[in-house]
């Protein structure tokens, strides 16, 4: 084998950095949508590499549902400071008030889909023309067909039938006034690639990704953190379990997995041997309808 050879993580990294640089060169006001989860933390790491020794030339934007894990918020603030990026936080709570939206009800009332309103308002407020997201094509079948540069109309809607052909490594980011582009630099990474890269690059993560004691309730086989955002019934039993999170979303719609894995190596070996997909195991919202993601994307979701 030649001495000039990139392994798969090197190749993925190079592809993602290339995409980041295209975004910075082609758009006037990009923004990185930051959720506090491992995928967006990886995005920030790649962005830092793409523009080194300069700073990341766009802000980090967090659409805050108000249902976040405190550990993730703390990490978000630390990371923004660490990389010297501007952090913009817009709250779903405020959108609900301003627009007189109806709060979802129910046991695990999730503001997940309300985020779309706040996101579209934020895009409008700052006139962002490109929003960078950490979605991966292996996550879900609607994602599997989305382009890396995904053009959205003025309502933020994705139209799977009108996607631009995306050939070689050439990205066409030209848009009309009012349109914007969602860009997904880690489209070709899988969950395991992300974890292996985090290990290789020694990227810091919020503590909830590792085993810790947490009060949870059991719901249809999934463990949900007992928080102020979840309505407890009389029949709910609060248990203390050793858990970690495999994805970090809202406390109302992200389930924990029982685990003793307290290091990256242990987490990775658990993920390799798991028999359940990331979304299947940890996302409560995706199970509602089989086409849930496709519908949300068409409405302007990430």
């Amino acid at each position: 084998m030649s001495q000039y050879h990139l392994d798969y993580l090197g190749e993925l990294e190079s592809e993602s950095i290339h995409i980041f640089r295209e975004i910075a060169a082609q758009f006037e006001k990009p923004a990185l949508l930051f959720s506090g989860g491992k995928d967006s933390i990886t995005l920030v790491h790649l962005a830092r590499k793409a523009f080194a020794p300069g700073k990341i030339p766009f802000p980090l934007v967090h659409i805050d549902t108000g249902h976040n894990f405190p550990e993730a918020l703390e990490f978000r603030d630390w990371l923004a400071k660490e990389v010297g990026a501007t952090l913009i936080v817009r709250k779903v709570e405020d959108t609900i008030k301003q627009r007189n939206l109806t709060e979802p009800r129910g046991k695990f009332a999730s503001r997940n889909w309300l985020q779309t309103y706040t996101l579209l308002d934020t895009i409008e407020e700052f006139k962002f023309d490109a929003c960078i997201g950490g979605a991966r094509r292996d996550e879900e079948k609607a994602r599997a067909k989305e382009r890396i540069f995904s053009v959205r109309d003025e309502f933020g809607q994705w139209n799977p039938k009108l996607q631009r052909p995306e050939l070689w490594n050439i990205y066409n980011g030209r848009i009309q006034k009012g349109e914007n582009v969602r860009v997904f630099p880690i489209s070709n990474w899988t969950e395991l690639d992300i974890w292996n890269y985090i290990r290789k690059e020694n990227i810091g993560l919020p503590s909830i990704y590792f085993s810790h004691d947490r009060q949870v309730i059991e719901h249809e086989g999934q463990l949900v953190a007992a928080s102020e955002f979840v309505q407890l019934d009389e029949t709910d039993v609060i248990l203390t379990k050793k858990v970690r999170y495999r994805t970090v979303g809202d406390m109302t719609c992200t389930a924990a997995v029982e685990s003793n894995a307290s290091t990256l190596d242990e987490v990775i070996s658990e993920i390799i041997s798991t028999k359940i997909s990331e979304r299947g195991e940890t996302r409560i919202d995706d199970k509602v309808t089989e086409a849930a993601m496709e519908d949300r994307k068409k409405n302007g979701y990430f």
Binding site: D138, A144, K145, P160, K161, Q163, N188, L192
Partner: peptide, 10 residues
């Protein structure tokens, strides 16, 4: 089938 879909395995 509308489009190219990308699939991953290792």
């Amino acid at each position: 089938t509308i489009d190219v879909a990308y699939r991953y395995f290792t």
